[in-house]
Deep mutational scan, measured.
Amino acid sequence: MMITLRKLPLAVAVAAGVMSAQAMAVDFHGYARSGIGWTGSGGEQQCFQTTGAQSKYRLGNECETYAELKLGQEVWKEGDKSFYFDTNVAYSVAQQNDWEATDPAFREANVQGKNLIEWLPGSTIWAGKRFYQRHDVHMIDFYYWDISGPGAGLENIDVGFGKLSLAATRSSEAGGSSSFASNNIYDYTNETANDVFDVRLAQMEINPGGTLELGVDYGRANLRDNYRLVDGASKDGWLFTAEHTQSVLKGFNKFVVQYATDSMTSQGKGLSQGSGVAFDNEKFAYNINNNGHMLRILDHGAISMGDNWDMMYVGMYQDINWDNDNGTKWWTVGIRPMYKWTPIMSTVMEIGYDNVESQRTGDKNNQYKITLAQQWQAGDSIWSRPAIRVFATYAKWDEKWGYDYTGNADNNANFGKAVPADFNGGSFGRGDSDEWTFGAQMEIWW
């Protein structure tokens, strides 16, 4: 008995050590931004985005507190085989008060198993909700290839000249389909599951310092038995992507060409959309029709120009041509140079221009935006974070068209359509004006 009692403290210590080691193995990653800002004409900070554009130049032009908190852990490992559990909870508030209630979004919860298939060394099996191989332009917060959501897949299969990845994910639309009631009355209240099937071939070395990635995505509306879509709904579509990445000037340049059809055009990033119906009456549900095509040509990157200068840049042309004439032509160009006074202090400027032409009206909206920021960051790279910055932003815009969301679809035949700025004596778009804002912001990723 005495021997047992003497061994007990040692056993407890060993158990505590094991539990401590396991606790220390938890990975904590994430992203956050928050700050305070004012508008020159009075009131809180207002942000500037061109009507019809899918993004905006973000430096000194973000008006919310946003965070993603990721917890993950390698829960099992034997040799080169392992299982990893990953989670991500995100939230966004308007940064107007101390207490701002919000419903967090559970954006990731997945398990990734590496090297589980003997004859596919280096590959990963995964299932669950996941940010899946996302491609974006940081300076405009624009995701041009992103099929994230609940799904499953097999990735990084070594095929000799590259890595092959296969995945299936889902994005549902509210009110996407109906069941038959009586007297030809349909009640569009059932969600429609939109499935996306993704095939990618990446890391193909085609020139010194250059790699090529090719991808095909097929999206479709997956209806339940005895349900139907509204007439004209976009049932399926394709997205084709080619991306060349070149190492240059201690950074990279990415050149991207994408072509999409029908349900893959509205978001243009790989998620299927077009079966959703915002109104019970299918007579007024025309606005979900996105049959047509999209072409996107994009070049972006980040480079170092000597010891003291870094720069991000982007140039993009996007043409969404829809059968219902509600598409757009959008082109944007911008730069973000950074001058480093010390390894932790810099001055950053961002200059961006957007131009969006309405397919329906032929009119154009444009905006110039310039931001000057003094910044303190954890390192001497344009990617170094955390960063604390004080900024001043000036924007000038001239908008000739907007979307008509007055009333509702039952009493407005133009609901959701592009109209000229002065349509029917109204005021659509943001008109011709300018404004400036100033404030302070922190940004961090880890």
Rank of each mutant, 00 (worst) to 15 (best):
76 W>G: 12
210 G>D: 11
224 R>S: 12
229 L>M: 01
251 G>V: 00
52 G>D: 00
260 A>T: 01
232 G>V: 03
443 E>A: 13
336 R>S: 15
233 A>T: 11
136 D>A: 02
359 Q>P: 10
67 A>V: 00
5 L>P: 11
170 R>H: 03
43 G>S: 02
268 G>D: 10
251 G>D: 03
72 G>C: 05
334 G>D: 00
446 W>G: 15
221 A>V: 04
140 I>N: 09
102 T>I: 02
261 T>I: 10
322 W>R: 14
395 A>T: 02
287 N>K: 05
223 L>M: 14
393 T>N: 00
442 M>I: 13
75 V>G: 10
113 G>C: 06
94 A>T: 05
23 A>V: 04
234 S>A: 12
285 A>V: 04
230 V>G: 11
390 V>G: 15
202 A>V: 06
12 V>G: 15
265 T>I: 06
11 A>V: 14
325 D>N: 15
37 G>D: 08
307 D>N: 01
233 A>V: 14
269 K>I: 05
224 R>H: 09
276 G>D: 07
207 N>T: 15
256 V>I: 15
50 T>P: 14
296 R>C: 05
189 T>I: 07
357 E>K: 03
12 V>I: 07
124 T>I: 03
275 S>A: 15
294 M>I: 14
11 A>E: 12
322 W>C: 09
239 L>V: 05
193 A>T: 09
122 G>D: 00
35 G>D: 03
260 A>S: 13
331 W>G: 11
255 F>Y: 00
193 A>V: 09
344 I>F: 09
21 A>D: 07
58 R>H: 08
254 K>M: 01
268 G>S: 01
30 G>C: 04
263 S>L: 13
51 T>I: 05
330 W>L: 04
384 S>A: 11
274 G>C: 10
6 R>L: 07
391 F>C: 00
42 G>D: 02
112 Q>H: 03
32 A>T: 07
20 S>F: 06
262 D>N: 02
192 T>I: 08
192 T>P: 13
89 V>M: 06
298 L>I: 00
52 G>S: 02
251 G>C: 10
303 I>S: 15
315 G>C: 10
327 G>D: 01
17 G>D: 05
242 A>V: 04
21 A>V: 06
152 A>V: 14
9 P>H: 14
301 G>C: 15
402 G>C: 00
338 M>I: 10
105 A>T: 08
342 T>P: 15
314 V>M: 03
221 A>T: 09
354 D>A: 10
18 V>I: 04
228 R>H: 03
43 G>C: 08
262 D>A: 14
236 D>A: 12
278 A>T: 07
381 S>N: 13
219 G>S: 08
103 D>A: 12
216 V>I: 10
242 A>T: 06
230 V>I: 02
17 G>C: 12
22 Q>H: 12
39 T>I: 07
236 D>N: 04
265 T>P: 15
133 Q>H: 01
230 V>L: 05
269 K>R: 01
13 A>T: 07
223 L>S: 10
252 F>V: 07
23 A>T: 04
35 G>S: 08
35 G>C: 02
111 V>M: 00
232 G>D: 14
99 W>C: 00
109 A>V: 04
16 A>V: 06
428 F>C: 13
6 R>C: 11
16 A>T: 06
287 N>I: 01
208 P>Q: 09
292 G>C: 09
141 D>A: 14
249 L>M: 14
296 R>H: 04
309 W>C: 02
443 E>D: 13
397 W>C: 13
334 G>S: 08
318 Q>H: 08
16 A>E: 10
58 R>S: 09
177 S>A: 13
312 M>I: 03
268 G>C: 11
302 A>V: 13
270 G>W: 12
38 W>L: 12
15 A>T: 01
19 M>I: 12
220 R>H: 06
229 L>Q: 08
250 K>N: 07
233 A>S: 13
344 I>N: 06
328 T>I: 10
75 V>M: 09
90 A>V: 02
356 V>I: 04
225 D>Y: 11
252 F>Y: 08
14 V>I: 01
199 V>M: 05
285 A>D: 06
21 A>T: 14
208 P>T: 08
6 R>S: 06
266 S>T: 13
200 R>C: 01
131 F>L: 12
260 A>D: 00
277 V>I: 09
387 A>T: 12
32 A>V: 04
240 F>L: 15
257 V>I: 01
17 G>S: 11
224 R>C: 05
36 I>F: 05
181 A>T: 11
13 A>V: 02
273 Q>H: 11
267 Q>H: 11
215 G>C: 08
18 V>L: 02
124 T>P: 03
386 P>Q: 03
6 R>H: 01
291 N>T: 14
440 A>D: 03
244 H>Y: 11
248 V>I: 08
316 M>I: 04
278 A>V: 07
283 K>N: 09
282 E>K: 05
228 R>S: 07
